[in-house]
Design a protein around this nucleic acid. Structure first.
Lengths: 329, 329
DNA sequence: TCATGATATCGAAACGTTTCACTATAAATG
DNA sequence: CATTTATAGTGAAACGTTTCGATATCATGA
């Protein structure tokens, strides 16, 4: 491994001069600069990033912590993060939280390996975040409930979104509305369900326990939830799936049983994933501003890095996207 | 930022002792160890990862370099990488090559910030890889052509796959077979096309230029390619899309024009993406062993890190997955 | 009792940078 | 000409760890 010392020696200058030259600092004359760069080229010098980060005490890198690198995840959200980070001249890496305490995520979270983190991972414990959060290390939390000092939440108005979805079904004449829920430890899911309940109540519709079934936010979960609903003798006329992934699975399952959408049953989802407009019929859903979530989160990090005070909660709103999967009764 | 020095002072030991204690090295008595850990806990000490990497001269992390973090990309491949890396006690980070020379990827590639790299990104130039490759820094290349010393390629037998796909159509009685190609700078695409041509020749079918159209590996590209083909007065009876993404778009476009699959036209894809079995009709395609690609790539890295000699090319094979989108004529 | 070895601890050097405080030279000022 | 100022370059300290070699303590057994 060739170091800056060797470059300096080859160029016949002090290592400080070499460093200035390599970093393009004006203090050095054009000739010596060229001499140094030439030497570096000849030796194929590559700087050691750690050494430099260590000295500079800053990495100019942000980490995006995901439950699992191998997705599926919101690519638009990532694009939002990426764009803003790049704008600020920062690098972005993504790492996985699989393995909890021993995960890569944990390593990056605890060992000062980045200047800030965006956490979108259920498998990082609140405990761990508490231990690691402090004023000089900005952490942005997505889809979480707990309050931690010096930590910021970016959220979407899930409850209002759940309300809107349900209300839309009601306005189309439905009263027998099922809810297919995600994992019970998801904050998003909890809020969407709350919105559903609130809408039923607002319109004086009696909630039916048999119509809330669990689907775990996965396509397969959606399928089995649909099967459960379809098997009931007194089934619902509309289903609100707590995310699109489940809705897509559910539609598939209904159709396989010869149940037509939206003629026999209406479907609404949540998220507006890419696929939503490619399924048949196209899925009516609640859109989350995913790009904006990523971008806002990242903006917040930079504000925190500049020691500006920021509001501990940042909420974005949702939109109803009307397509073809809901029929007026 | 509390350092190991402060921990040592608080525990009344030398910093070396503190280091031994914190790293769980036997040399230190149980009592002092506890004393140190206690002090560390009280001070909320977090080690500085760089300093430690710098000294140890190893990071125990691998980087996966992707064209764009915000996908779409092969999650199974990533899972393969992840699993093997974890098995070896290594961490994995993903970074984006957007921005070329100034990308995060470039930074990780050049600045010794990881112990090895897997590159799945067209936007990293061959030039750059050449500059950075050397014996102590394992780099595995996916979907690339160039030969660089001390660099290893993991490939899939794209050509045989392209051959198989085309042959399957031929065996089903098709002779008028279109090819929808990906970007011309993709090695994968080039080989799949070569397989297509070879199969036509093997069965004495005259290739038709008007039936090879370009779709850029994207869904939209697939749609427009399908539209071009559908507009021809003498259209093909079967289409081989060079990847599934395009095939899905193409199917949508055909169906929108009232052309039924597979009754009016047969479709075959390449990749076997998750969606392939969810579209209607289910897509017949060539499966790439994506998990195995990731896993093999990572295994190769570890062999290289152990200074074992490895073959510069590692090829995996493809399988024909028969579903519903091809009809026997 | 005295050498022997094991055990626990310590001090200091090292990893490869960056940057501060300085010096030497040359140019500019009055 | 004497003095200031700007410029180009240097040496050394520092960043926070790990680890080598040395030392001190103490029990062991001949």
């Amino acid at each position: 491994m060739v170091t800056i010392k060797e470059v300096a020696k080859k160029a016949n200058v002090a290592v400080s001069t070499a460093s200035y030259a390599l970093n393009g600092i004006k203090k050095v004359s054009p000739e010596t600069k060229e001499k140094v760069l030439q030497a570096a080229r000849e030796l194929n010098y590559r700087k050691n990033g750690f050494a430099s980060d260590l000295k500079r005490n800053s990495t100019k890198t942000l980490a995006l912590i995901l439950s699992d690198l191998s997705g599926p995840f919101y690519s638009e959200l990532i694009r939002g993060v990426q764009d803003v980070a790049t704008d600020h001249g920062y690098d972005l890496i993504a790492c996985s939280a699989i393995g909890g305490e021993n995960s890569t995520a944990a390593k990056f979270l605890t060992e000062h390996r980045v200047d800030g983190c965006i956490v979108l991972a259920h498998n990082i414990t609140d405990e761990m975040l508490k231990n690691v959060a402090h004023h000089h290390f900005p952490i942005i939390l997505l889809d979480r409930e707990i309050e931690i000092d010096s930590t910021v939440h970016v959220r979407v108005s899930n409850k209002r979104g759940g309300f809107k979805a349900t209300e839309y079904l009601i306005q189309n004449g439905h009263t027998d509305i099922a809810f297919v829920s995600g994992p019970s430890n998801s904050y998003d899911n909890k809020m969407r369900f709350a919105g559903y309940q609130e809408a039923l109540q607002a319109y004086n519709i009696e909630p039916q326990n048999k119509w809330v079934v669990s689907g775990n936010f996965t396509r397969e979960g959606g399928e089995s939830a649909a099967n459960i609903l379809a098997a009931q003798d007194q089934g619902p006329t509309a289903v609100f799936f707590a995310n699109d992934e489940m809705a897509v699975g559910g539609m598939e399952a209904f159709q396989k049983r010869g149940i037509s959408i939206p003629n026999d049953i209406s479907i609404i989802g949540f998220d507006d994933i890419l696929e939503a407009k490619y399924v048949n019929p196209k899925l009516t859903t609640i859109r989350q501003p995913k790009y904006e979530m990523g971008a806002s989160a990242t903006h917040l990090i930079f504000q925190m890095l500049k020691n500006e005070k920021v509001n501990p909660i940042f909420e974005l709103h949702t939109d109803l996207i009307i397509r073809e999967s809901v029929k007026k009764l």
